[in-house]
Amino acid sequence: MPALDKKRILVADDTLPMRVMLQDVLTEAGYDVVTAGDGEEGWKLIQSGTHFDLVILDLLMPRMTGFDILERLKAESPGQCKVLVITGIFKSHKEIVRLKSLGACGYITKSALVDEILFRVNQVFYIGHENTRKFPRLLMSVPVSYRIKGAQFSNYTSNFSAGGAFIRTIDPAPIREQIDMVIKIPGMEGAIEAAGRVVWTNEYETYRRKSCLPGMGIEFLEINPLSQKILSEFISEKLVNEPVWLT
């Protein structure tokens, strides 16, 4: 991160280990970090006149929830600061829609790895790399076959969404490589077919150093409407009944 423009981040979370972890990780990455132990303390800091470039906000806190703070910001100080929500789980996708309507610029989960957290925070600040993730990802390993430049491969996902998937592999394709995929959803006839491209990778050496799963993140570029509908409905049902997903 550029040293000439050190960003100040407020972390509001009532869980001490999470608060300390975020403070340590973000401070080491070059950010100026201030912490609050609950929602009310966080709101007082926001209203204190101190400028925060980003607020990382836990949704479930005593005295004031994350939703309470977002609603007050929208009503009293729209555009004052960017807010990235951190949470355990959502009850349904409707809460994600609500976050967006209240002005949150994105969300991460408390189960996210360190590099995922830093990636999401950096996206907020770097021009041209906005936080554009639109869909929650379902943590589920399902069979996937894919073709790259005529070569056929078979592996498993570690997660997928209505907009893409992460394929586990120790030999990921280069970023921007085109890929044709067939994903088999358990309990469903047929399969999901989609064309996409590689948008990020975790190399095997990264996995060994940081405990990040080796593989590649795929963005869907083309998917037929029926497959899109089936995939979206399957994920929405899982979000309600088995909320084991991350952003």
Rank of each mutant, 00 (worst) to 15 (best):
L4C: 07
L4D: 15
D5H: 12
K6Q: 15
R8F: 05
L10W: 04
V11R: 04
V11H: 08
D13I: 05
M21I: 02
V25A: 07
T27I: 02
T27A: 12
A29R: 13
V33A: 03
T35D: 06
G37S: 13
K44E: 14
L45V: 05
I46S: 02
G49R: 06
G49V: 10
T50V: 09
H51S: 05
H51Q: 08
L54N: 02
L59P: 00
M61Q: 01
G66W: 02
I69L: 12
L70C: 11
L70W: 06
E76D: 15
P78Y: 06
G79L: 09
C81W: 01
K82M: 12
V83C: 11
L84G: 05
I86Y: 00
S92Y: 01
K94Y: 05
R98Q: 13
R98L: 07
L102H: 03
G103T: 02
C105S: 06
C105Q: 09
G106Q: 09
Y107A: 14
I108L: 11
T109V: 15
K110D: 02
A112V: 08
E116I: 06
L118Q: 04
F125R: 07
R133T: 10
F135A: 13
R137A: 05
L139V: 12
M140C: 10
S141Q: 13
P143G: 09
Y146E: 03
I148W: 01
F153N: 10
Y156G: 00
T157N: 07
S161D: 10
A162I: 04
I167T: 07
R168S: 09
R168F: 08
T169S: 13
A173N: 10
R176G: 00
E177H: 06
I179E: 05
K184E: 15
I185Y: 06
P186F: 13
G187H: 11
M188R: 12
A191Q: 13
A194P: 10
A194E: 08
G196W: 04
N202C: 10
Y204E: 12
C212F: 11
L213N: 09
L213E: 15
G215A: 06
M216Y: 07
F220K: 03
F220E: 06
S227D: 15
K229C: 08
I230V: 15
S236T: 14
V240I: 15
N241R: 14
